[in-house]
Structure formats: C-alpha cells, structure tokens
C-alpha cells in the first residue's frame, strides 16, 4: 500500500465577493493549491449581500499544520468581524506529499 502522509485540510466557506481575496491569502500563506465549490447554507448571519446574486464559495486547501494555523489566524483577523465567513480544519491523509508541501 502506498505511503499515506498526514496533512491538514483547511476549509473556508465565505461570501462570493471574497473569492479572489481568499485565494490570494491562502497562496501567500503557503498553500500550493485549492479547490473551489459553490455551496448553499444557513448560519448565524441572517441577511447577506450575495444571497440573491448567487451562492457562497467553499475553498478547500491541503497544507501542513503550520500553514493551516497561519491561514486560520489570518482569515479570522481579516474577515470575522464584518463578513459571513467560517473556517475549520480537519486531519487528512494524502498520497504524494510533495504536491502540497513545497
């Protein structure tokens, strides 16, 4: 069986207007790639600017635990106050570790 390496998956779910900002942010902090999906959901913020212009975005990125920490700190610092954003991290196992950690 191929060798599986533990990594962290950071997931950010946010308003669509933040798309470009968030992608820049995670790349600056050391993520080498990301996956974006359009999602729907409901949370603590009732009313949303983007709610009739479309859905929310979910960005997933696989990174080392240090990078995961800095991404989460930065997202919290920049966006939690005024924006609809959630961020969480999960343990995952990957093949080909070199793809994610440069």
């Amino acid at each position: 069986m191929a060798l599986r390496i533990p990594l962290r998956k950071v997931t950010i779910i946010a308003e669509r207007v933040l798309r470009d900002d968030l992608i820049t942010l995670i790349k600056e902090r050391g993520a080498s790639g990301w996956t974006l999906t359009m999602v729907e959901g409901e949370g603590s913020r009732g009313i949303r600017a983007s709610e009739w212009e479309g859905r929310n975005i979910q960005i997933d990125t696989l990174v080392s635990s240090e990078v995961a920490e800095t991404i989460m700190d930065e997202v919290g610092r920049r966006y939690f106050k005024d924006w609809s954003v959630i961020v969480y991290v999960a343990d995952v196992e990957v093949l080909r570790k070199d793809k994610y950690i440069g």
């Binding site: 308003e15 207007v17 600017a49 983007s50 212009e53 005024d82 924006w83």
Partner: peptide
Amino acid sequence: PAAVRVALP
C-alpha cells in the same frame, strides 16, 4: 451592492 459590500463591509 457588490461595490458596497467590498468598500463598506
């Protein structure tokens, strides 16, 4: 709305 969301969050 899009501009305002960005400028005046």
